[in-house]
Design a protein around this nucleic acid. Structure first.
Lengths: 125, 125
DNA sequence: CATAAGAGTCTACAATTGTCAACTGCAATT
DNA sequence: AATTGCAGTTGACAATTGTAGACTCTTATG
């Protein structure tokens, strides 16, 4: 499933997705709750809502066992690709290379990053 | 004024900002309206709302003449920097170079883009 | 088997966003 | 001076988002 036509994932929902992406297997709500309660300070109810909305949106699959187990239906890479294209269109008027230019000139990259990127560009052909 | 503490600019509002960034001088609503009515099909009321909200948010300045003239208070570069940092944090867990990696591997860049980027990285030191 | 914990579902509610209409006052034109 | 058009302001309203409580039904445990 590509992210193309999927509904938009919101910032809060994205935190759930990131957790699911990090996990290798499907997770029961229990684990999702434990994690996000600690890291985000969210109430269990909030977490349950987010997971439900993600299921409704088709971004997360639920698998019935004793209890539902949840796993991502879109990969982090797909989402990243979409989010990046979205940024390029919305903010950079579709010019991908303007984004990279901005990156290079910003202080967002460390000297090491720049080195790495050079490496990357050398390797890519 | 840096964008750091400014309130978030929404997608619709961004269209107004882009117009103001393109214009060299401050613009009266008349011109903003004409442009966006054509390009976006928005009603005058909608456009007026967006401009007002941007003024309230501090993203746009109004200068009193016969009629108010509007101009950006934050530059496109500042906004781009902010939006890009935001993407990197939200989606790439703070790893700027992961973003570039994704870009390089995506089909978002043409072969020419890649050439250009190489150039960029060569020049940058 | 009775009971408690908590997963799953439903409902809620304020803030934000996308869209726009109505009113009000000034300014140009007759 | 009277009229008309439109800038500026206020209000509106539905959809989305962030955040969470309440209720129900299942399942593990005494």
């Amino acid at each position: 499933m590509s992210y193309e036509n999927a509904e938009k994932i919101t910032a809060s929902e994205l935190e759930v997705m990131k957790l699911l992406w990090r996990a290798q297997d499907a997770l029961p709500v229990t684990e999702i709750r434990e994690e996000l309660q600690k890291s985000k300070g969210w109430e269990p109810a909030t977490i349950k809502t987010l997971v439900s909305r993600l299921v409704t949106k088709g971004a997360v699959a639920q698998e019935k066992r004793k209890v539902f187990y949840y796993s991502p239906r879109i990969s982090e890479e797909e989402y990243r690709a979409w989010a990046t294209r979205d940024l390029i269109h919305r903010v950079y008027n579709g010019r991908a290379h303007d984004l990279v230019a901005a990156l290079v000139h910003s202080d967002g990259l460390t000297q090491e990053d720049i080195q790495e990127l050079r490496q990357m560009f050398r390797v890519e052909d």
